[in-house]
Simulated scan of single mutants.
Amino acid sequence: MSTPPPTGPLVTRGSLAAELRTLGVRAGETLLVHSSLRSLGWVNGGPVAVVQALLDVLGPAGTLVVPTQSGDLSDPALWGNPPVPREWWPEIRATMPAYDPRVTPSRGVGVLPETVRTWPGALRSAHPETSFAALGAGAAAVVDGHAPDCRLGERSPLARLESAGARVLLLGAGYATCTSFHLAEYRVPSPVVEVGRPSAAGWVTVREVSITSEGFAELGADFERDRPVVRGTVGAAAARLFPVADAVAYAVRWLPVHRPRDLVAGAAPAPGGPGPRRRP
């Protein structure tokens, strides 16, 4: 059986750059990108062409930032899709490789972040589960100082991006992927949980704010309704552009009103406990 031809549209480095500029991406800015390569159409050059286009638009003074999460460096007791046999848990914990920002691959965030992570000159933050990678003039300022007990809070790149006036680009990705909303979880009452992970010293447990993207699609829809969000199309993908600070401030007000009670500090934990909903 022959493979059907691609449906397109045909997308190139040049067409992407032109459409990003039309959307409003500016030279010299810091841009946090959440993306779906497949949504763009048939990209000549794949993720490399997309990264090149983003860097073309941002220019030498700009900074490109992507999430490079590695949620599989976590307690196997919390894996759910698929789970692993209980009798495996001790050996998995004892033998799981520790996080190494140079070699640990990103998981569950798409091919574009992994392309940025391995790009010459890319820098990556130190958190073993929720790291970010950055390219460009402000890369070090974004990724430095990511505390091992602060996944997406005040001592993470998200807070650096907020204070730097960075913007978010959702490139074919929905609001469920918007990590900026997580920073708000650290500023409203949220449960604190114990999180296990591998380290150079063996298996360790740290206390972290419990985070979840549950309700983020609804939060994003309300945010887009009430706040100025630039909307457009890049290739075949729907694109959204907005400041990190706007997203965080809106989520700080929205979460205490709309989040289910079991996700608020002081309430009983949700069935199954915190942690990854699936193995990436």
Rank of each mutant, 00 (worst) to 15 (best):
R261H: 10
V193Q: 03
L112M: 12
L10S: 15
M96C: 07
T130M: 15
A147K: 08
E162K: 06
G110D: 10
T22N: 06
E224N: 10
S180Y: 00
P120Y: 04
A270S: 13
R13W: 06
R160F: 07
D100W: 08
S39Q: 05
E91T: 12
S210W: 11
A17F: 07
L112H: 02
A176G: 15
T130P: 00
S36G: 09
A251S: 06
V50M: 01
P105M: 02
A133L: 04
R225Y: 03
A126K: 06
S35Y: 09
G266P: 00
V43R: 01
V244T: 05
A122G: 14
A49R: 07
E214C: 13
E218A: 15
E208I: 00
R240Y: 06
W89T: 05
A140G: 14
G108S: 07
L64D: 13
A94I: 01
P276F: 03
E214G: 12
G41N: 03
E185Y: 02
R240V: 03
G41R: 06
A122D: 08
G165P: 09
V109W: 08
R86I: 10
A247Y: 02
G28H: 07
V209N: 05
P243Y: 04
T130Q: 15
G172M: 10
V252T: 14
V142W: 11
P120W: 00
V84H: 00
G153R: 04
A267G: 15
L37N: 04
P274L: 04
L23G: 01
S213E: 09
V206K: 02
G14P: 11
